[in-house]
């Protein structure tokens, strides 16, 4: 049985300007100890997908499709089951590390409350556990961090403390939302190494716009305008990309000459057809028809008529 199965998931936000489709027709499968990177530019729906997986979206979000965690439909769970699942079975490493901790509660207390809530340990034992996880993520003085308030720590320190918190319950699946956002190259490398080490016993979905970060995962899914446009083994996708958008992302990296993708990301894709066609250099007549995600080789799928 797979760990997580997402089927035809779509999320629509009811806004004053009318309904806005954030993600559409998402299918994903995660096995035990699987690692998947979801890449794409801002607004492509990757964070919404992460939040929808944990049923964390606001009431204004209309969610269709299904998310099945260990054979149980997340969207059919009772409130109690849902609270049990969050933080214990599926854990989120939220983005914006400095804003993720409550400013008036000590870091240690915020980690301990999760450990206790998850029923992993209680009281003194939970505190010890929190301290050892702070130690695992490389703090030289875990006690000082435990007693510290978030504002006394840098963004990178908060990120490490967040990873310590999110992994302290030994979850089955960790969803890391932009763990390298806003970090310099050295911190980024440290965080990625540490994330890899800390999530070794779990499955990992890493949401990122950073292809270097994505490279540490076994598979990568590329999202554009709310859809998965390419998914496959990381090496295959990053070295032999089949979708023109994936190629654009790769060429846009600083190490590849920072070549921008022409045109602009049209978030409110009202038109039919391929959503990338107004930016695609290889656009052809068939592109007015919406392409389906199809397998072009073992485990490598792409949403393009011509790939």
């Amino acid at each position: 049985m797979s760990l997580l199965k997402v089927r035809d998931l779509s999320v629509t936000f009811d806004t004053l300007q009318g309904p806005f489709k954030a993600i559409e027709g998402i299918d994903l499968d995660m096995e035990e100890l699987d690692t998947l990177a979801i890449v794409g530019e801002s607004g492509c729906g990757k964070s919404v997908l992460g939040h929808a997986t944990m049923r964390l979206l606001d009431d204004i979000a209309v969610v269709r499709g299904s998310v099945i965690y260990r054979g149980r439909e997340v969207y059919a769970m009772s409130q109690k089951e849902l609270l049990e699942m969050r933080g214990k079975a599926i854990s989120l490493v939220p983005q914006s590390p400095s804003a993720s901790f409550n400013p008036v509660i000590r870091i240690g207390k915020q980690i301990t409350e999760l450990i206790e809530k998850a029923g992993v340990a209680h009281g003194r034992e939970a505190e010890e556990r929190a301290l050892s996880y702070l130690d695992y993520v490389g703090f030289s003085d875990p006690h000082a961090i435990f007693d510290s308030y978030p504002h006394r720590m840098s963004g990178g320190m908060c990120e490490r403390a967040l990873i310590a918190m999110s992994t302290s319950t030994e979850p089955d699946l960790i969803i890391a939302d932009e763990p390298t956002k806003g970090l310099d190259a050295l911190s980024r490398k440290n965080i990625l190494d540490m994330l890899q080490r800390m999530t070794a016993g779990s499955s990992l979905i890493m949401i990122t716009h950073d292809l270097k970060a994505a490279a540490m995962c076994k598979r990568v899914a590329v999202m554009y305008s709310g859809e998965i446009v390419e998914i496959g083994p990381t090496r295959v996708v990053l070295e032999h990309p089949a979708h023109q958008y994936t190629r654009g992302l790769i060429d846009a990296q600083p190490s590849k000459g920072m070549k921008p993708i022409p045109g602009r990301h049209n978030i409110s894709h009202k038109s039919e057809g391929c959503r990338f066609r107004n930016r695609c250099e290889l656009v052809q007549s068939e592109c007015v028809r919406h392409p389906l995600l199809r397998e072009i080789e073992e485990g490598h799928m792409v949403r393009c008529h011509y790939a």
Partner: peptide, 13 residues
């Protein structure tokens, strides 16, 4: 605030 969202993600009641 974002930390309230995070508290929800932690599964706190």
């Amino acid at each position: 605030e974002y930390f309230i969202f995070v508290a929800k993600a932690k599964g706190l009641s």
